[in-house]
Amino acid sequence: MPIFTIILIATISGLTIYGFNNSDFYEKYSFNVGAIKNEKEYYRIITSAFIHVDYTHLVFNMVSLYTFAEFVEIEYTSKVIFLSFLLSVIGGGVYSLINNWKNDNYSAVGASGGVCGIIYSSIFLMETGSVYIMFIPIPIPDYVYAALFIWGSYYLMKKGTDNIGHDAHIGGAITGIIYAISVIPWVFLQEFRIILIMFLPFAVLYIHERYFM
């Protein structure tokens, strides 16, 4: 049984629900560029992962977390899930901070960076498999799901109509891949084609931003 995954989900859910009814708690621990940059409140990079905007945001992240973390924890122990989540949260937060450095008012919450890191790392730590998405009756290759996850994050990040840290997905995903390779170094060569496919969205996003915006 994936004990740590269940505890992590329960902790995130509990703190998120508490934040729904406590605006001071929500504001103190959410990701905020100005507070991190000017007040040196670096803890926000991690604590913001334990708060969500609403139940839809929370449920989506927790379902994704459990779907991918369950078998990784059973196969590789709780330590791997802990480090994958924590490092990806930090990686996503750092990317988000750099990406929004000039906007002191930028604020976001969500475990998406850590979840995305686990999604991506699990693809390399486990044998390539498939996942089922609600309302789609056929299995989807896990790396396709991961790519679609990033594309959706990019679209919502650019749309900028909510308080969700969509840009943290990218930093979290990259961190997750790097961590997976550190756990099983030979996976880089064995799964090189999949790594190329996984990085294709990042290359397209970079070219789009660099030359067409």
Rank of each mutant, 00 (worst) to 15 (best):
G110Q: 03
G160N: 11
D167M: 13
I140G: 01
I177K: 03
A180N: 02
T175S: 15
M157T: 13
I136T: 11
Y143K: 07
Y132C: 03
H166M: 00
C116T: 13
G171W: 05
G160R: 09
W151E: 06
N163C: 15
A180C: 05
H169I: 05
G110S: 05
A111H: 03
Y132N: 14
V131K: 05
A147Q: 13
A147V: 12
Q190R: 10
V187R: 14
G110F: 03
I150E: 01
F124R: 05
W186Y: 12
A168N: 07
Y132H: 12
G114L: 02
I170P: 04
H166K: 00
I150M: 09
V144Y: 12
T128D: 12
V183A: 02
G117S: 09
I150Q: 00
L189A: 10
Y143T: 03
I118N: 03
Q190Y: 11
D142T: 14
V183C: 09
A180L: 05
V144T: 08
I184T: 08
G113H: 01
P139R: 13
I184R: 08
F188D: 03
A108F: 01
T175Q: 06
I119H: 00
N163M: 15
F188V: 10
P185R: 06
P139Q: 12
F188N: 04
M134K: 00
K159E: 08
S107K: 15
Y179K: 04
I138T: 15
S122Y: 01
A111C: 15
W151N: 05
I184W: 04
I174Q: 09
V109W: 03
W151Y: 14
G113L: 06
S121N: 09
Y145V: 11
L156G: 00
H166V: 00
S107M: 09
F149Y: 11
I177S: 03
I177E: 02
T161Q: 15
V109M: 14
E127T: 12
S153M: 12
G160S: 11
M134T: 11
Y154F: 12
W151S: 06
I184K: 12
K158W: 07
K158E: 14
P137H: 07
H169Y: 13
Y145Q: 04
S122E: 05
L148K: 03
Y155H: 10
L125A: 08
S122F: 04
I170Y: 01
T161M: 13
G172P: 08
Y120V: 05
F135S: 12
P185A: 04
G176I: 04
T128E: 11
I138V: 15
I136C: 12
I118W: 04
I181A: 07
V115G: 01
E127R: 11
Y132I: 02
F149L: 07
S122L: 01
V187K: 11
